[in-house]
Nucleic acid binder design. Structure first.
Length: 440
DNA sequence: TCTGGGGTCCTAGGACCC
DNA sequence: TCTGGGGTCCTAGGACCC
């Protein structure tokens, strides 16, 4: 074996010892979900709006090309939508989360270790897979997801999660790569890092990007080569990890087990300004109802509850956005005590004369149900048991017949404050009447 | 008229204790 | 009369993510 062969052998070994991550990210996920069931939207500008039909949260490439920015308030762009024949949808979360499950199932079949990072993204560990070239393997994954779900994904590969993220960005923005790019084996990695802006890197938001620019650091490469002590001081330990990960030093592990939530928020903007306490009570009750249900589904209980109100910050009127929290006498996931506590707090922070835009509830001190600390004045075990039974029955009926079949009357019936969702597509995959029909 | 919602982590600073 | 300093815990606020 000559020296070159020896070197390449050592290199191969070194490479095999390094971890390899893939980041699979669905392209314009919400838009892609709509397109699966309305194929005529392919090649057309399409956007999906946030709750309340407020902002643009997903754009097709065609919509991006028209210059429509992320987060654009829909009402300001109404004429633009008409002028450019943009197809507009309200958020259809039932559809998106079902499609997400399908995509994740396919991805999971390709790697023993997977971290579902969000609705439309997952990290896969490809470290063990050395029989196939990683890029070839990634292309196979991509084809399979498309075939099974109709959703297009892009895949980035790298020796750290941050590099996999960066590779994904390049895979998406460079058509020649056809949806897959590998920064792990890439011999001129720095050249590509120079082509990415610092703000394109995972963990660098707008504030940090501005700070970096002020110090002459513009590209991902600049960031990678920056002074670590300065980064540690200005961007905290998380920023330092980002720099190390860009250098190929893994700092962030794959989290294959979802971590239990530490807090939970339920809130919604109103469809119109709300001034009356009675309506705020209804809206808040419905948020508490929803939070409690989620808590029970997660097998958790909450020890602390916070209620907040918000006036519309875009209005020139006087603002009043109070919040108040309380330690629950007994950590719980039962709707009734949570409702009682929340409505009491609302009563205390409410002020007449303000037009509120939003209310919500924040549950913290979440713990697993089974470790609950008993209090000295604990109600009889029998009472607790029957309250638990009641919740179980409530959840069971709502799971079977729809989530609002049984609910507390204080959540209201007219719901004049409810959000707008004027342009919703059918729940094609989760509601019997909405299942698409095929004409022979 | 209409400007989203749901999370996590880190740090600084205050309160409190010895 | 002199009025220290270190540790811990908690919270608010600021940054980030999707």
């Amino acid at each position: 074996m000559d020296k070159n062969q020896l070197n390449s052998g050592v290199m191969a070994e070194k490479q095999a010892a390094q971890p390899l991550f893939a980041l699979a990210d669905c392209n314009n996920f919400y838009v892609s979900c709509e397109r699966v069931f309305q194929p005529h939207l392919e090649d057309k500008p399409v956007v999906v709006l946030s709750n309340n039909d407020g902002c643009v949260v997903a754009r097709s490439n065609e919509a991006k090309k028209l210059g429509l920015p992320m987060g654009a308030p829909a009402f300001k762009w109404k004429d633009f939508f008409i002028r450019h024949k943009v197809f507009v949808f309200s958020s259809n979360y039932a559809l998106y989360s079902d499609m997400s499950d399908r995509v994740m199932n396919v991805l999971a079949s390709f790697a023993p270790e997977i971290e579902i990072y969000s609705h439309d993204e997952a990290f896969l560990s490809l470290s063990g897979n050395r029989s196939t070239d990683p890029e070839t393997y990634a292309r196979r994954i991509r084809r399979e997801v498309r075939k099974c779900t109709g959703i297009p994904v892009s895949i980035g590969l790298g020796n750290t999660k941050t590099l996999a993220k960066a590779a994904n960005k390049l895979a998406k923005s460079t058509p020649e790569f056809q949806g897959v790019f590998d920064l792990g084996q890439c011999p001129d990695r720095d050249r590509y890092l120079k082509s990415l802006q610092a703000k394109d890197i995972w963990g660098i938001g707008p504030r940090y990007a501005r700070l970096l620019q002020g110090h002459g650091l513009y590209t991902a490469y600049d960031l990678k080569e920056s002074n670590q002590a300065w980064i540690r001081k200005k961007l905290t330990v998380a920023g330092l990890q980002t720099v190390l990960e860009l250098q190929g030093v893994p700092c962030v592990d794959l989290e294959t087990q979802p971590q239990p939530a530490k807090s939970m928020v339920r809130s919604r903007s109103f469809g119109r300004p709300v001034t009356e306490l009675s309506e705020l009570r209804e809206a808040l009750s419905s948020h508490v109802h929803s939070a409690a249900r989620r808590l029970r589904a997660n097998g958790q209980i909450a020890g602390n509850l916070q209620v907040f109100l918000q006036t519309n910050r875009f209005k020139p009127e006087p603002q009043y956005s109070p919040c108040l929290s309380t330690c629950l006498p007994r950590a719980t996931n039962h709707t009734q005590p949570l409702l009682t506590a929340a409505l009491k707090l609302l009563q205390r922070i409410y002020k007449k004369g303000f037009a509120f835009q939003k209310t919500g509830v924040l549950l913290t001190d979440l713990q697993p149900e089974f470790v609950r600390q008993l209090t000295f004045w604990e109600a009889g075990a029998k009472d607790q048991e029957s309250a638990g039974q009641l919740m179980k029955t409530l959840d069971h009926i709502n799971a079977r017949y729809g989530k609002d079949t049984l609910r507390y009357a204080c959540a209201g019936f007219e719901k004049n404050w409810e959000m707008r969702r004027g342009k919703m597509s059918p729940e094609y995959t989760t509601r019997w009447p909405d299942i698409p029909r095929v004409k022979a």
